[in-house]
Amino acid sequence: MKRIHVAAAVIRGVDGQILLAKRPEDKHQGGLWEFPGGKVEASEAVQTALARELDEELGIRPTAARPLIQVRHDYPDKQVLLDVWEVSAFTGEPHGVEGQPLAWVSPRQLGDYEFPAANRPIVAAARLPEHYLITPEGLSGPELLRGIQTALKSGIRLLQLRAPAMFDAQYRDIAVDALGLCAGKAQLMLKGPLEWLGDFPAAGWHLTAQQLRDLSAGGRPFPLQRWLAASCHTAQELALATQMGVDFITLSPVQATQTHPEAQPLGWAQVAELLQGFNQPAYLLGGVTPADVERAWAVGAQGVAGIRAFWPE
């Protein structure tokens, strides 16, 4: 069965809201909401197809677009490759040219809409930012909280509280304070045993590669409404992350790092290869800085993650 290549767009308005369209009842996956787009014709460039489809469906022309995520999905009756681009500027006024209902929704509301199964990773990618901050080791509680406050002011919207050398009780106390700081501003990801999940309902959870290997056979440990991430370094770990149903991963190390000098860097070419068959948003970590974000997009990543290069000194 030939995989159907589809170009789709996450279209953002100036207020950050995202445009959705409803599929006609008589079409495949009819009645569900979708990110607008359509089939890429043979020998047509993806961006050309996207511009054509958005003009035909919505009466708009994209003027700023970048790759967001690629998703391969097998339905019982067809196989699709969704080539998703983020459109941040366009000309024209979007309207349902074919009479289809449209809705502008905030990223947070996307979970309230029903999409085809293949769209779940796109919903995650549309909600996630391009930078993922990981807290540095060796800081006191007050230093961590001060740095988090500064990072939030600078616009960080996703951060991981990582303090491997800290005692459990101290980590848990700081997690409570960090959650208070992040409320309404950013998503906080915690690390630790899954027994703690019930104590921090507002937090997402970031699993170590070891936790991923130990727990993936049991599937996702909590419902979809809560963010689940994992640290990955190999193709096998990417497969386990898929099996577990995580929302996003970090893939590392891209380049040599001070934190883990013994780890063999993957290099950009291998990163691109690993992400080729992976359907979830991925942050590249290890020897990358915020300046590498466009290169990360080009190899299929959501963005970049980091400790030193991202932490406000």
Rank of each mutant, 00 (worst) to 15 (best):
W227G: 09
I134W: 01
C182Y: 01
A49K: 02
V105H: 00
A203S: 01
L102F: 09
G138D: 01
G267H: 02
R213L: 13
P223K: 02
S88L: 09
Q264D: 13
D214M: 15
K191Y: 15
T208F: 04
T289R: 05
F35G: 04
A51L: 09
T250G: 12
T63N: 01
L207G: 05
A296K: 00
A203Q: 08
Q276I: 09
L181P: 02
L158P: 00
I69H: 01
E56F: 12
A272C: 05
P136S: 10
Q280V: 13
D77A: 15
G92F: 06
F167R: 14
V97R: 13
T208L: 10
R120C: 01
V40E: 04
E262V: 10
I11P: 00
A163H: 11
L228C: 07
P36N: 15
G16C: 08
R12Q: 02
Q29A: 15
R108Y: 06
D247E: 08
Y171G: 04
T234K: 05
L139W: 06
V246C: 09
M189S: 10
G31F: 15
Q17S: 09
V10S: 10
A163Q: 10
V176H: 06
L102Y: 04
Q29I: 03
A186C: 03
F90K: 07
A203T: 08
A256K: 02
E313R: 11
Q29Y: 11
G218M: 14
L181C: 05
E25T: 15
I122A: 00
